[in-house]
Design a protein around this nucleic acid. Structure first.
Length: 245
RNA sequence: GGUAACAAAAGCCAU
C-alpha cells in the first residue's frame, strides 16, 4: 500500500489524475487494500482539478470500504472545497467531522481560515481563528501569515496588527511574507512611514526584504506622489543586492 | 519505520 500510495500521490501532484485513478483501480484488484491515505491523496488530486463531485464520491467509497474517515481525509476534503470557493460546504464538513468524533487539527483550521480569507470573509476567518485558540490549538506560522495577509487585503489593518501582536507574543516569528503583507496593506492606506518602519524591523531581525517587499513599498510611494523617494528605495534595494525586475 | 492533508505576497500587460 505504501508503494501504491507513493505513486498515486506522485501522479496526482503532476496533474496526471487519470493515470493515478487507473493505478488506484489496479491496486484494488490486487491484494493491496487502499487505506485512508490513498483516499486522501486522491481526493486532494481531484479537488485540484475542481472535481468536487468526484472527491465526494471517493469519500463515500472510503466509508463503504469500512474505513472510518480521520482528520487527514476530512482535511483534504475541507481544503478542496475551500479552494473551490465552497466555504459553506466546507463548514458543514467540519461540523460533520466533529459529530463523527473526529477532531479538526491545525491543518483543518488553516485550510478553513485560508478559504475564508480568499473569499474576503475575513471577520469569519478571525472568528475561526478565535475558536481554534479556544480549543487550545497552537496556531502556526501558516495560520498567522494567512490571516494577516487576508486582513491586510481587506483593509482591516487594526485587526491585522492584533494578530501580529498575538503572533510575536506566542514566540512565532513573522517571515518575509508576513511583513510584506503588512507593508502592502499599509501602503494601500498611504501609511508610508509606518510601512517603511517595518523594513527597518525586518533588517533588525535579520530578515532581508526582497524584491516584492520593496516593489510594494515603492508602488505605495509612487501612488502617493513620492516618486523621488521611490527612487531612493530603488538604490537602497540595489545596494542590498536585491535586483529589480 | 518508510507514503499523507494547510498559507505564500508586489508591479506591469491582456481579458
Amino acid at each position: 500500500s505504501v508503494t501504491y500510495n507513493t505513486l498515486i500521490d506522485g501522479l496526482c501532484k503532476e496533474g496526471q489524475i487519470d493515470i493515478a485513478l487507473s493505478l488506484f483501480d489496479s491496486m484494488k484488484k490486487k491484494r493491496c487494500k487502499p487505506d485512508e491515505l490513498t483516499y486522501t491523496v486522491l481526493i486532494n488530486g481531484v479537488c485540484k482539478e475542481g472535481k468536487l463531485q468526484q472527491a465526494c464520491e471517493l469519500f463515500n467509497e472510503l466509508i463503504e470500504m469500512g474505513i472510518s474517515p480521520g482528520t487527514l481525509v476530512y482535511t483534504a476534503l475541507v481544503d478542496g472545497h475551500c479552494k473551490c470557493g465552497k466555504i459553506d460546504v466546507a463548514l458543514g464538513l467540519m461540523n460533520q467531522m466533529v459529530e463523527n468524533g473526529c477532531e479538526p487539527n491545525l491543518y483543518t483550521y488553516n485550510a478553513l481560515i485560508n478559504g475564508l480569507c480568499k473569499e474576503n470573509r475575513v471577520l469569519e476567518a478571525d472568528n475561526v481563528f478565535g475558536k481554534m485558540l479556544g480549543e487550545g490549538l497552537a496556531p502556526s506560522l501558516v495560520t498567522y501569515t494567512t490571516l494577516v495577509d487576508g486582513l491586510c487585503r481587506a483593509g482591516a489593518m487594526d485587526l491585522a496588527f492584533k494578530v501580529l501582536d498575538k503572533m510575536v507574543k506566542q514566540g512565532c516569528s513573522p517571515n518575509v511574507y508576513t511583513y510584506s503583507a503588512l507593508i502592502h496593506g499599509l501602503c494601500r492606506e498611504g501609511r508610508l512611514e509606518e510601512a517603511e518602519m517595518f523594513i527597518g524591523e525586518m533588517k533588525e531581525k535579520g530578515l532581508q526584504p526582497n524584491r516584492v517587499t520593496y516593489t510594494s513599498l515603492m508602488d505605495g510611494n509612487v501612488k502617493s506622489g513620492r516618486v523621488d523617494h521611490a527612487f531612493d528605495l530603488l538604490s537602497k534595494m540595489i545596494n542590498e543586492g536585491c535586483q529589480p525586475n
